[in-house]
């Protein structure tokens, strides 16, 4: 936290450190987010894509929650102590909603994967694409 930094550090460096201290949280979240996104887009396995998507979304939740954090605050449950500092409840509310949306999406996606597995016999994207292309252009398949 900013106030804990030693005073003798030159101002620029101090500013930099303060800045980093004030933002590292976001950056970590972003790193997580990107890992999630990476899994989603680089993997051909449909289930794994969903997992990646989950990580991506969870990271977004963290971003929101990070916003709501107030230094030195506590959970937003009124304790009766008038000097208590509370973290911002609004992001929490939003994220509660978002989590539900996330699990709903996941459930639906998984159901789809199940059906795809039944219909195509695989859950690998490239194999499915091949099957679909053959469906669409049967002539080409014959010529192969």
């Amino acid at each position: 936290m900013p106030e804990t930094l030693p005073e003798q550090v030159p101002n620029q460096l101090a500013d930099l450190l303060i800045f980093i201290g004030g933002h590292y949280n976001y950056w970590m979240v972003i790193v997580l987010m990107m890992i999630g996104l990476y899994i989603t887009i680089s993997r051909g396995n449909l289930v794994k894509k969903i997992v990646g998507l989950n990580i991506f979304q969870t990271s977004v939740f963290m971003l929101y929650i990070s916003m709501g954090k107030v230094a030195g605050g506590t959970a937003p449950i009124i304790t009766g102590n008038p000097d208590e500092v509370y973290s911002n409840p609004l992001p929490h509310v939003l994220i509660l909603t978002a989590i539900v949306v996330g699990i709903s999406t996941t459930a639906l996606a998984l159901a789809l994967v199940v059906r795809i597995r039944e219909a195509f016999g695989t859950i690998e994207e490239d194999e499915i694409l091949t099957i679909e292309r053959d469906l669409e252009f049967p002539a080409q398949e014959a010529s192969k």
């Binding site: 989603t40 977004v60 999406t105 219909a119 469906l135």
Partner: peptide
């Protein structure tokens, strides 16, 4: 193929919605 179409739609739609959420954040 409706299934894969829906799945792709789901992935992309969710990414889109998440991007919106990020932007909104």
């Amino acid at each position: 193929r409706a299934l894969t179409a829906a799945y792709n739609y789901l992935i992309m739609g969710t990414i889109g919605a998440t991007f919106f959420v990020i932007g909104l954040g």
